[in-house]
Design a protein around this nucleic acid. Structure first.
Lengths: 244, 244
DNA sequence: GGGCTTCCGTACGTTGCCGTACATACAGCG
DNA sequence: CGCTGTATGTACGGCAACGTACGGAAGCCC
């Protein structure tokens, strides 16, 4: 069993062999992630990487004239701040907390040292980055071809996969902001889903009632991302006590 | 000066220190890339990485029911097959030659060995991957918010940056396929650009006549990608004879 | 309980792109 | 030169999403 508050609630950290994990542990700092908090801004020097636990962080790009679009979403399966080990130390996007919770953060300089050892940590971080790439690619495809309703389904499922319960705290206006569509568009799509009993929502609380039906309704993009993520991490744990 | 046919026509290879470059050289194999050739298919085991020289490769996703969307474009500034060193060995997308030319290819297993040395090659490949990530992210944003005409401008400029001349061989139907829009949409947008003297085209040959005006017309996405790429590689060469 | 704020619902004209269909034009070839 | 295939142009109805506007409803605070 895992302790109630443990960095191992994050899959990447949990997948590390004990030796590597122990080496990181003293420098992992548990921090609360409040809704709307920006972990980093577009172009800003990133100082920490964040390993979310029971929280969700959105990577999004905000255009000069206001509108925005979500590029990817990170939960306890991943890490926020890949630019720190990829080498750039910043990205042209923001990272905002979409669902409040906690994360374990680590100084980028520290992570970089560990990364350069080239062992399991590097292996895991790179594989995670590839799954992130897949998610971004699929976001591009989805933005091009699919209707708002399907994108909403995809977004709900991606969020759900990263949360312990089937309820998420998120107003329609915020979802619209993430998807880069009108708030009314979300109202309409969500209304339809609610009318058919797939979800229930009220003033910023969304409950998924029928996940199978939601999965039947979503476009292929969701499955592609999920399958690829599963493939990349299938049995790829180094830890003895890893639990899927 | 560079030899007429040299792997150093590829920026990544050219940026390597002599020692690393020499170690790769015997295993680099020059191959022709014909228009339309698929370097890898969605989900297939990738065997080689390709360093294009004077050619362009599109990464694109093809949906179950036909339509497709370009995710990123790779020329002599980069490498096709990042999944090989990122760890996944495949991706859910295809890589198709968009502009014929040549590439130097290298066995994935070989690259991986070199990558794991952790030196300049790893450094460059990871930085390149980050710039690729930026391109994908911006593609997602552009797909969401910008009109076909702007996307066409972006696409033309991205292609132009990867070619030696100001002419590209590409029918409107193929461009439409890349952008994931109707062929007629491209005809209309291209017609407008031609009427205003920015480009000239005829049966699959497109000539850019006024690049500054094209840059004035494009959405911010192009600049974001370009700037980030420049930033990531600014003076980041390890080779003595590197020429920008 | 009254007022305020936030969240959600609905409506309407507009637009960009779609799907489809067909017309034109250029290029190579026999 | 005429044929044929490919590339490009044009047209039209349809629709999803947009921008905008405003009405209603739920929670919060004093």
């Amino acid at each position: 069993m895992l302790a109630l508050h443990s960095p191992k609630q994050n899959y990447l950290l949990a997948a590390l062999p004990d030796a590597d994990y122990e080496r990181l542990l003293p420098d992992l700092e548990r921090v609360p992630l409040e809704l709307g908090l920006a972990l980093y801004e577009s172009g800003s020097q990133q100082v920490y990487v964040y390993f979310p636990v029971a929280s969700i962080v959105s990577l999004l790009y905000v255009m000069r004239d206001g509108p925005s679009a979500e590029i990817a979403v990170v939960g306890n399966e991943g890490v926020v701040g890949v630019a720190l080990f990829m080498g750039g130390e910043s990205t042209p996007s923001r990272a905002v907390v979409q669902s409040a919770g906690h994360a374990y953060r680590l100084k980028g300089s520290h992570l970089r040292t560990e990364f350069e050892r080239g062992g399991p940590l590097q292996y895991l971080l790179l594989r995670y980055t590839q799954s992130l790439i897949t998610q971004m690619a699929q976001t591009a495809v989805c933005n091009r071809h699919h209707a708002v309703e399907q994108q909403l389904c995809r977004w709900l499922l991606l969020s759900l996969d990263r949360l312990p319960s089937n309820e998420l705290t998120m107003t329609q206006a915020l979802i619209a902001n993430m998807l880069g569509v009108r708030r009314e568009g979300v109202t309409e799509a969500a209304g339809k889903l609610q009318a058919e009993g797939l979800i229930h929502y009220s003033r910023g609380k969304i409950t998924v009632l029928d996940r199978p039906k939601l999965e039947a309704r979503v476009c292929e993009c969701y499955a592609v991302v999920k399958r690829e993520s599963d493939r990349l991490f299938a049995g790829k744990t180094f830890a003895a006590d890893r639990q899927l």
